[in-house]
Amino acid sequence: MRHLLFRLICGVALCGALVAQSSKGSEELVVYAYDSFVADWGPGPELARRFERLTGCRVRLVSCGDAGQVLSRAILERGKPVADVLVGIDNNLVARARREGILEPYKPAGADAIVPAELRLADDWLLTPYDWGYFAIIHDAKSGVRAPRSLEDLASPEFAKKLVMMDPRTSTPGAGFLAWTIAVYGDRYLDYWKRLRPNILTLAPGWDAGYALFTAGEAPLVISYTTSPAYHLETEKTDRYRALIFPEGHVAQIEGVGIAKGSRHRDLARRFVDFMLTEEAQSILPLTQWMYPVNRAVPMPDSYRAAPRAGKSLTLDAERAQAAVDAVIDLLAR
């Protein structure tokens, strides 16, 4: 009889533990992000750890590929989203995200104080910016080729086949550069591209392939971010790669985090967005994302002295850039 009672108590305890475990498991925040965010050396794992310590709830980081695929996946899941939080939709994609109706607006605590006006992605806070960076041409100082002095200079004949560009169809920096040329040249951007065409060695499918070509010495110029030299200074102790600041101004990429519409853990998702703006979270970003955190209170590491600030800031017109992609590709193919 006592044996039976003992077994019964154990059974109940076990069931209780299982139920407790599963109910704890149900408090899990699903975060979709792009691949380098989720990597070991990216900000994702540490952010997840700190958030879990703060709230006691689990964070499940899911890599979708790149930012475009985060959006694409959210669209495919529209109506019954698996994700609670979407990380990586930037100023290039925000209009499309709005059109597809996959985000719900939320203004995080302290947003007015922390996020400067020029970095706001949406007035209704459909997305909350968490980091940003200027697009810039990176120059290899050891190449023997002189550095171009401006966007216009980049198109001069002496740089023939010296520029690695990324395909605007398949890569964010590629689309960013196109938006940059539109911001500077307005309607005459196609003329600029006609002059630039002989200088383009190749249109790499993604930043990784293009930048790999650049660091392999294949070409002395590549489109990337002003913060790229900081990476090289920090990890490789070299200042060989210099970001060039152009007098015409630069456009910025601003990355945002948003709450998936129809998320099942809305409160937890809101807490996560709040958390992303805090110093605790933002301080992880400089050495993992190699972008500037939006929170100015975060001290920047020493290697960021290699990352120059742009003199003039231009706005990125994503819709116009998107419409221009076909025209530019047709021009380049001729």
């Binding site: 475009g68 695929q69 959006l71 694409s72 669209i75 499309r96 597809e100 560009m165 395909d167 169809r169 398949t170 689309a175 065409r197 383009i200 190749t202 249109l203 790499a204 499918p205 392939a209 070509l213 998107q322 992609v325 590709i329 047709d330 021009l331 380049l332 193919a333 001729r334």
Partner: peptide
């Protein structure tokens, strides 16, 4: 093939797969 075409194809090269990528991933 996709990556090899884009990387080695020079500016503006396109195949059906590249067009598909653009439609599916970029233009959505």
């Amino acid at each position: 093939s996709f990556v090899i075409i884009l990387l080695l194809g020079g500016p503006g090269g396109t195949t059906l797969e590249v067009e598909l990528y653009q439609a599916a991933r970029s233009d959505l």
